[in-house]
Amino acid sequence: MEWVLLVAAGLFSGIVGALVGLGGGIILVPAIVYLGAIGWLEGITPQTVVGLSVLMMIFTGLSSTLAYMKKNTVDFKSGFIFFAGSAPGTVIGAFVNKGLDLPSFQLYFGVMMVFISILLLLRKCLKPVRWFVDHGKQTTLTVARGTYVYGYPIWFALLLTFIIGFSSGLFGISGGAMLVPAMILLFLFPPHLAVGTSMFMIFLSALVNSVTHISLGNVPWLYTIPVIPAAYIGAKVGAYLNQRLNSEHLVVALQIVLLLFGIRSIYEGIM
């Protein structure tokens, strides 16, 4: 039964993560924590759930990146710059994770989920900011949807992705929920390019993140057997749907789910 649940969690995490550029960890982590809390999975700790999530993100990131490369919706130069900022953040976050017990993890992770759900909610209400484009290196991209001019100061991109990487190493999430809105609203990336580039950065960061968590003994290897193949397949499905569906409907549903999960996680952490 537990393997069926893990396959379902991995598949859904891969689909949602690739569809809207979140990487999947934001779905997998609360799902695994919940299954562990009700006794359906054994040996779940803040360290093992994060180790499982970051290892999964290697494969969801790779699967999504390969799919987006075929659509030419990956900015590799920006992806490497973002990775340069996030990589050291993931390492520091992984070591900070060592000191968290389950109640503390649930409390802090719940706050993070509520923040992300609010960020996703406000994404459409906020107006794009041109300052970062005007004060950074600009790129012009012409696609079927029109011509886009986007860019960013490298120092700010490195600072932002360091913070995102720290959150990834600490909580096992990809950071795409924060990076994609920032790329669209601050750097004026075209939405589909933002998602594809985000997944490329997630793949690279997950490699570093996973090495750190493996060295710390945080990966429950038995659970990776059902989760990783399911997540890899789910990521391919999500990337396929991204080109054909309006993902905003899923984002709205995701906001509600994250908000409810976040409130419940905060309650469990406090109680």
Rank of each mutant, 00 (worst) to 15 (best):
F82C: 11
L119E: 13
L107D: 02
S205D: 10
V133Y: 08
W3N: 10
N209H: 08
V33N: 05
G196A: 10
P153A: 02
G165V: 00
L254W: 09
T147Q: 12
P220L: 13
M56Y: 14
L241S: 03
G172K: 05
V33D: 09
A194D: 10
G136A: 11
T65P: 06
M56D: 15
V20D: 03
A239P: 05
M271W: 06
G146V: 02
V208N: 08
T161G: 00
F171T: 03
K137V: 08
H249W: 08
G17N: 10
L19R: 07
T224P: 01
N246D: 15
G262T: 04
L19W: 01
T161K: 08
V195G: 07
P30S: 15
F95C: 05
L28D: 14
V50L: 07
F80W: 14
W155K: 02
M56E: 15
L102V: 10
I202G: 13
Y34Q: 13
L11S: 06
T139V: 05
G176S: 11
L179I: 13
K127F: 07
G23A: 10
V4S: 11
I163P: 01
R244Q: 09
T60C: 15
Y240Q: 11
G79Y: 06
A194M: 12
G238N: 09
T161R: 00
H192N: 14
A253D: 03
V143H: 03
I256W: 05
A9Q: 03
G93R: 12
I118R: 14
N242M: 07
L186N: 11
S168N: 06
F156Q: 00
T212C: 07
G79V: 07
V257H: 03
S247T: 10
I27V: 06
R145L: 05
A37W: 08
A37V: 00
K127H: 04
A235Y: 01
G176T: 08
A94I: 00
L222C: 04
L102W: 03
G151N: 01
V50N: 08
S265T: 06
G51N: 01
A8Q: 05
V74T: 12
V219D: 10
G36K: 13
Y150T: 02
I184E: 13
N97D: 09
L258D: 07
E268W: 06
L241M: 02
T73N: 14
M1G: 04
F109L: 01
S64N: 12
S78T: 08
A144E: 06
L259G: 15
P153C: 01
T48E: 01
I164V: 08
D134K: 12
G10L: 11
F166S: 04
Q138G: 00
G25K: 00
L188F: 04
T139W: 03
N209L: 01
S13D: 08
S53Q: 13
L121W: 15
V252W: 07
G61C: 07
M183V: 00
L188M: 15
L19D: 12
M69F: 15
L188V: 01
T142G: 00
I32T: 02
G238K: 13
M56C: 12
M199I: 07
V20P: 06
D134V: 06
I26K: 07
V49A: 05
V33R: 09
D134N: 13
I266G: 12
E268P: 00
M1V: 04
V49C: 02
L119G: 09
I81D: 02
F156M: 06
G25W: 02
G172W: 04
S78M: 13
G151I: 06
L55Y: 03
I38P: 03
P181T: 09
I38H: 12
